[in-house]
Amino acid sequence: MKHLLTATAFVLAIAGTASMAGTAHAEGKLSLYHWFEYIPQDLLDKFSKEYDVDVTMDTFDSNEALLASLKAGKLGSYDLAVPGDYMVDILRQEGMLDTFTAAEMPNLGNIEDQWLNVPFDQGRKSTIPYQWGSTSFSVNRDVYQGPIDTTDIVFNPPEELKGKINVLDTSGETLTLASLHLGIPQCTSDRTQLKALNDLVMNAKQYWASFGSDIAKDVLVSGDAAVGMIWSGFSAKARAEGANVEYAFPKQGYIVWMDNVALLKDAPNRDNALKFMNFLLEPENAAAVTNYANYSAGVKGVMPFLTPEVANSPESNPPKGQKGVFVQACPEEVQVMYDAIWTNLKK
């Protein structure tokens, strides 16, 4: 017994050493804090090789998790993070962003005009576009053949979809979609509207099989869920992995978002961070991310580098006339009510 345990410890120790030895030594370093499953390893390797920089990456699974981690003392250990639109605003208010000059970012001109003067970063002083896309839901067409251009599918589903729905486990996106369903504004402090929102999700919960963000694609591919709230690119990936799913653009509206590469305050490797941002603004490299993640780049000249499936993906090409809205960051006195609704929902 003792020998076996010693052997086990020995094997574990070797495995640990081996994995540490795997990181080669290079001139510079770059520390990245990124979403899970969002950047191809090839692209990181390419940057490492071209600039002789060691890239390390940690991942998070929601904008709030990113904020919590930076707030809990991680600021100063990462160079770059990839916050969504409203989180850029919050990070700036928290004083967590550094700024760069136009001279430091020669490729700034590559950004598509519509994404240059965005409300969350006028004129792009701290961030550059990473990818943009939408959040809505997908339906397994083997299970349900009816029309899906309505949020009723999630909140008031037809009989064959009841109990087969996965919703995202983030209150921001799920409650925003619920607000679109009701046609009420985001961050409302109107009590009748908030009560209606609370009643809607409390009633809809009986139709939902699970809450989960990182499993959003997996449950559709495996068939655990027939409807899943999901990000557009993840739905495209689910389709590519063989699930017969269609991504919906509901007439009540859907969520639009843009993830941005943000230069963090107290970045330990600021120069390399700027190099990496410029690198990501090269059309070829932006296209590599898009080909991997199935969203849209927000960078000019990516078209020639995109694979035809990605360029023409139905998930990235919403029908004309449907409205997409950004998630808003609510003020504190309103946010506590949304938090209370969320806790109420999961109690």
Partner: peptide, 9 residues
């Protein structure tokens, strides 16, 4: 949820 989620309490 209090540390990682929206609540942040």
């Amino acid at each position: 949820e209090q540390f990682k989620g929206n609540a942040g309490n």
